[in-house]
């Protein structure tokens, strides 16, 4: 199993954290992982993305241009990454913020109202967790929900750990959605 993933959204939506969380969860289950953030002229409100690989074998090139899975949290990210998903791949998009529907028919398209689910469960700032929950449901081979919940402590910075109970709740809600 080798899954190449791109997480993309606005800066501040937590796409880098999402990638990191999934990596730590996968790593705890004995998988090889890599995470490359977009960096540089990025800022809050701008676009951010990260490239993640979760694999049973050592990661050769960590670069992901054509992902098996794209997770897009806003419209600019959908426009940028939908065309890049490999045929037969998976696209999960945040229907709370993205109005238009993805047009590809050669990939699996899954929508999740991430902000709404997060809002209902405590805070819309945890919308990224709803998406990860959905991803884990679709692709259980990446990591289990339990490992991912356990990885929150390590992935989330000390000053934001107080939000982890909400993060956990939203993760579970996204998984069940």
């Amino acid at each position: 199993m080798t899954e190449k993933i791109i997480f993309a959204g606005f800066g501040g939506q937590g796409v880098l954290l999402s990638g990191k969380l999934l990596c730590i969860a996968g790593m705890r289950e004995g998988k090889y992982v890599s995470h490359i953030p977009s960096y540089g002229a990025e800022m809050r409100g701008g676009t951010a993305n990260c490239q993640v690989i979760i694999s049973d074998e050592e990661v050769a090139s960590p670069v992901v241009f054509h992902p098996d899975i794209a997770i897009v949290l806003n419209t600019p990210s959908l426009i940028k990454f939908e065309p890049r998903v490999k045929a037969g791949g998976l696209l999960i998009y945040n229907s709370s913020l993205i109005d238009e529907k993805p047009s590809r028919t050669d990939i699996t398209v899954v929508d999740i109202a991430a902000n709404d689910i997060a809002e209902e469960n405590g805070s819309s700032r945890s919308a990224n967790m709803a998406v990860i929950g959905k991803l884990l449901k679709q692709k259980p081979e990446l990591a289990s929900l339990e490992s991912t919940i356990a990885a929150l402590e390590e992935a989330v910075s000390a000053r934001n750990r107080k939000f982890n109970p909400v993060n956990e709740k939203v993760l579970k809600a996204g998984y069940a959605a």
């Binding site: 990191k20 992982v33 490359i36 953030p37 960096y39 990661v59 960590p62």
Partner: peptide
């Protein structure tokens, strides 16, 4: 290089 410095691995 920039990629190696920025990337995270186990």
């Amino acid at each position: 290089d920039g990629f190696l410095g920025q990337m995270a691995e186990g």
